[in-house]
Amino acid sequence: MTAPAGPSLQTAPVVVQHPGSWACATTHYCPGCGHGLIHRLVANALDELGVRERTVGVAGVGCAILIYNYLDVDFQEVPHGRAPAAATGVKRARPDLVVFTYQGDGDLAAIGTAEIVHAAARSENITVIYVNNCVYGMTGGQMAPTTLVGQRSETSPEGRDPTTQGHPIRVAEMLATLDGAVYLERVSVTHPENIKVAYRAVRKAFTYQLEGKGFSLVEFLSPCPTNWGMKPVDAMRWIDETVSAYYPLGVIKDREPVHLAHLVQQPPTAFREDYMHGFRYETVTQATEDELGRRTRRVHPFGRRGGRWVSVDGEEYRPSDHDDAEDED
């Protein structure tokens, strides 16, 4: 018996190609890590939407800070947790660009909590790829804000104790309370069906950005076999059986943005009438020149809000006294 002659490598039909947004590089990720898969889904989505040439990614700090080695798009690499702020800067400066952040759970849900909450509250028209592996990966497996109750880590060696170490944060659910958050979905990459769902979520998040709908975030439950101390297959099973029990998969929120036009068009409800007069310039006349000359030896720190007037001889005046004050010279 000989094996049936199959097509040679040279003549085989091409079934799968590298996406154009993919930069072929040797991976630095551990065996069984989820980042490679998730990178690939992002690259595929950028390709399918045809936006590679106008995309700027913002890399958060963590294992995936080197995402710019794997994706062939422009990138900014920013301080730990600040990616949503930097992405805000990019998108506001250049609304024509497609802007996404790629952040881990330490980056996004601990040090960068303020930045992600307020980017969502402002409904920044960006896409956030949030990779939750319940642990600080790059620093060696410390407890993350997402570490499950009872889960062991470098800094919760007896398992996370909620009485002293708090409860894990469900980011998507937390952000769902914000009117500015438009689309939030939690996905995983544990098997092909989940990967398909995940890809659709990523594509949808980018599509929403192209449609100008506002803030979207896709939360990935991702395996970290190295720091979980598991074989890759066991890590995938642990996500399906345990992690996704606490972090349920599915669409957390998907609705039209709450940019209520009638609210925006209303005049400001409370407004200091005098406020705009603060932005005032006066053309300098001879009279003001004379007045300025008279004042040159005074220091007036705080304008009309009080403060001190000091004359050359060191005496203090209240502003009300000013007109009566005489200059020494």
């Binding site: 900014q76 702020a85 506001r92 400066a93």
Partner: peptide
């Protein structure tokens, strides 16, 4: 473009993003 951010930390990183373009 003008944004009043949530902190000076965010402000300087928004500068990073915008200036980076």
């Amino acid at each position: 473009t003008f944004v009043q951010p949530e902190s000076e930390v965010a402000a300087i990183n928004m500068v990073f993003g915008a200036a980076g373009t």
